[in-house]
Amino acid sequence: MTDRTAGSPTGADPLVDEAMKKAAVAWVKVPGCPAYALWCVASEGALVVVSGPGEQQAPGLADAERAEVSLRGDHGGRIVTWPARVTRILPGTEDWDQTAPVVAAKRLNASGSSADLVARWAAEGCALSRLSPAGEPSAGKDLPDGSLAEPPRDAPVLRATRKPFRLHRVRRR
């Protein structure tokens, strides 16, 4: 049996390493919560996710120790799922000072500068979570054959559909 992690600079599975480098969105499942699609940034052999007020919602992630991460390929299908160790990066630490500006610089559609964004995250209690590979990934034959689709969850962004506007009266025969 060969060591699949031997060629990886981070010690993780090469498939996980490559998928993390290309990932912009990851499906993250915390025990006791449904999986959420979360925007993420690859950093030092892990994925970093920001959540909290004014950012994406990730129930349970900030307080979790473990999570399950699924990444997709270019074709849109899942290519790998791996267990992750969740580490919260706290404001005022050296890790925060190094990681938060990198994540803020890659945040799309943010108002203000990266420094302003990092300051807002710290002030409003946003969570910066590092998801590091912590076990054997499942890929290929280990993935389920059936769909894991779930019905849509309730969200405050849903709106009632309006009737279409009609300029004139439609005659029925």
Score class of each variant (00 low, 15 high):
165 F>T: 08
4 R>G: 00
12 A>E: 00
84 A>R: 02
59 P>T: 06
124 E>A: 11
117 L>S: 11
77 G>K: 06
35 A>E: 05
169 R>N: 06
111 S>Y: 00
35 A>K: 04
65 E>D: 13
132 S>T: 14
127 A>R: 04
171 R>S: 06
124 E>S: 11
139 A>G: 01
115 A>W: 03
170 V>H: 11
74 D>R: 14
123 A>E: 14
56 Q>N: 07
89 I>P: 00
92 G>Y: 00
114 S>V: 06
85 R>H: 03
160 A>C: 05
120 R>E: 15
107 R>K: 06
137 P>M: 07
33 C>W: 01
33 C>I: 02
123 A>F: 06
167 L>V: 13
135 G>E: 01
95 D>K: 09
28 V>R: 04
17 D>E: 15
114 S>R: 10
109 N>K: 07
149 A>E: 12
157 V>T: 14
2 T>Y: 09
37 A>C: 07
60 G>C: 10
16 V>H: 00
45 G>I: 03
112 G>S: 10
52 G>H: 04
139 A>E: 01
16 V>T: 05
171 R>F: 15
9 P>A: 03
64 A>R: 02
117 L>N: 07
87 T>Q: 12
168 H>K: 13
70 S>D: 01
4 R>F: 00
141 K>F: 07
32 G>V: 02
66 R>F: 04
132 S>V: 13
121 W>R: 05
98 Q>F: 05
106 K>Y: 03
72 R>L: 11
30 V>S: 06
152 P>W: 08
54 G>D: 07
44 E>I: 02
76 G>D: 03
162 R>I: 12
145 D>G: 09
47 L>M: 05
38 L>V: 07
43 S>D: 12
163 K>I: 05
108 L>A: 14
16 V>M: 00
160 A>D: 09
77 G>R: 15
133 P>T: 03
